[in-house]
């Protein structure tokens, strides 16, 4: 059964179509990457999933149930814009959100204490939120999203602003809830994380799903056709230079990446570079990174980074 299914889901704000009728299935278990440039409609899709917005059309089902019948206890949410009640005591705050997520008072207290212990904040239970450092507040915010053990957790940029130690801690917490069978939907712009964590993704652009599927397969499909070059004296290079060979060229001052056309051969790229007098120091056929794929798909062809 799918963790989340979207059937013809659409949402407009006035004239702006934030999400066009959209079909998407998010499989249960593991981490699913929800990718897309700023303003692509990700947040709107997430907010509809969390019941903050009602879709104009279409159906959202959560673990096979219509969205409107889903208990809030099943969902956890870490929004991109972090926010907590600054003047509330940390323990009280966690209990409050626990109760909103369907926990009974006693259980909410127990979970709050346990969660704070897990992230090393047990001494701060009686402190007000605004007495905590930013990193500590991030931990509390993550506890708010996960303490009630949701079946589905939607985390928007969970690692932004974290130091490496806390990033590791967050990673461990993610591992723990994954062990318990929670499905994590991760929205992020950090493509290395997507490569590291996600089994499958959907890429959203201009309110539509433009790419979806298994990460390894997507990288294979794109990767076989990518070339990475390092060079000097490449000032004369332009995207047009390679238009006949590459579907897309990403040209930087000392480095370039080319996504080859179906019939093109990697050797052609090298030959042309040498013909133009460019001093090539490194040349490799590379598996496309999610970063490249993201840029390629979103810009729809040619991107020039000069």
């Amino acid at each position: 059964m799918h963790a989340l299914s979207y059937r013809g889901v659409a949402k407009s704000f006035g004239q702006v179509k934030a999400v066009k009728p959209l079909e998407l299935d998010i499989p249960g278990g593991g981490i699913f990457g929800l990718l897309g440039p700023n303003g692509a409609g990700k947040s709107t899709l997430i907010r509809m999933t969390m019941g903050i917005y009602l879709p104009d059309a279409g159906d959202i089902t959560v673990l096979g149930m219509p969205r409107t019948q889903v208990a809030s206890a099943m969902l956890g949410y870490l929004p991109e814009e972090r926010g907590l009640y600054a003047k509330m005591k940390v323990g009280e705050l966690l209990r409050f959100f626990g109760c909103l997520r369907g926990l009974h008072a006693a259980e909410a207290s127990r979970r709050a204490a346990e969660g704070l212990r897990r992230v090393g904040l047990e001494k701060w239970e009686q402190n007000k939120v605004d007495e905590l450092s930013k990193g500590m507040q991030q931990k509390v915010q993550l506890l708010v999203a996960l303490q009630h053990r949701p079946k589905i957790a939607i985390l928007d940029e969970p690692f932004s602003g974290l130091d490496p130690v806390n990033a590791e801690l967050f990673m461990e917490l993610l591992e723990e809830i994954l062990q318990e069978g929670t499905t994590v939907v991760l929205s992020t712009h950090q493509m290395e994380q997507v490569e590291k964590l996600c089994h499958s993704i959907a890429l959203i652009n201009q309110g539509e799903v433009v790419l979806q599927g298994d990460v390894a397969k997507i990288r294979r499909d794109y990767g076989a056709r990518a070339v990475k070059v390092e060079f000097s004296d490449g000032a004369s290079l332009t995207t047009e230079t390679f238009a006949d060979i590459a579907e897309q060229s990403l040209i930087h001052p000392n480095e370039a990446r080319f996504f080859l056309r179906p019939a093109a051969h990697a050797g052609k790229v090298l030959k042309r570079l040498l013909d133009m007098g460019v001093k090539v120091s490194r040349f490799e056929e590379a598996q496309a990174s999610m970063h490249d794929i993201f840029v390629k798909v979103v810009t729809g062809g040619n991107a020039h980074a000069n």
């Binding site: 907010r47 969390m50 019941g51 903050i52 809030s72 969902l75 949410y77 929004p79 814009e81 972090r82 926010g83 907590l84 009640y85 600054a86 959100f97 909103l100 997520r101 915010q141 708010v144 999203a145």
Partner: peptide, 16 residues
């Protein structure tokens, strides 16, 4: 306050 501190987004994901 709920609006300016953004806490409202978390709350509205659980409460109408």
């Amino acid at each position: 306050e709920e609006k300016s501190t953004k806490v409202v987004e978390v709350i509205l994901s659980a409460v109408r």
